[in-house]
Design a protein around this nucleic acid. Sequence first.
DNA 1: GCGACAG
DNA 2: ATCTTGTCGC
Length: 289
Amino acid sequence: MESTSEEHKQAGAGAEDPYVSKHDRLQTLVDESVKQEWEAEQNRLKLQLIEDDKFDWVLDLENQDNTTLKRVAAIDISYSKTNEQNAVAALIVFEYPSMKVLYEDFEKETTEYPYIPGFLAFKEVPVYSFLFKRLREDKPELWPEVLLVDGNGILHTRGFGAASHIGVVMDIPSVGVGKNVFAVDGITQFGVKELCEKTLLKGGDIQPLVGTSGKTWGIAYRSTDESKNPIIISQGHRVSIETAVKLTKACIRKFRIPEPIRQADQKSRTLVREIYDDPKPASKKPGKK
DNA sequence: GCGACAG
DNA sequence: ATCTTGTCGC
């Protein structure tokens, strides 16, 4: 039988087929039935989603004296370049507004699932839940008042991205900050890019992301004068879009990415390299060679 | 069927 | 997500 490379690829999805990449094998691990279960869980959890401000702290950028916000956290996860399943996740709690690190914790992880657009939470939330559990047990007094997540909140196919997912599961106010646009409701990367080139002229400028339906899914924000590409802010859980933008703005320091997320990204990336990609000669005993 | 596709 | 070289600017 004649077989194109495409057919060969599909026909040989078995785990023993050397012509099928590990990535492809992971993808086939998540079949339609799994995705349907995940969709159902997203829709179920979404019933608990709160898109209004529901917290007891105050963040006033005009009158800092009114501000009572003390603890902002960020989570991120970095993957091994040699094995895409291996990763290190980070949970860091910062003092606001000094951005001094109050608490940081890391955890190695071997992700069970691959990345599938629309289902990022199912790949990353398990290790985050673990880290939050350890925080609650070890330093409950440092529980953050709000959480920044690298990824989208309601800017999502079903209005329930990873930032909203972790926010609901942990019952913590959360904000999604992405580096790319997730296409939904007529919003496209290209469209947003073109629009932002006209509207985001300087650092601090914002551009609402309004879908065909009229819904505002998030806001593109030019965080600094130097960064031409905006970051994409969307509501996670228990925050309005205004608060989501205000908090993100308050967490920008010198760089495009909000400082908490930037540091969580940096540290998890350093660790994943040390642990998986730059294996140091396993601790040789001093004096021995 | 076709295009889209966070990390 | 990760891989990549040089390059511009403070």
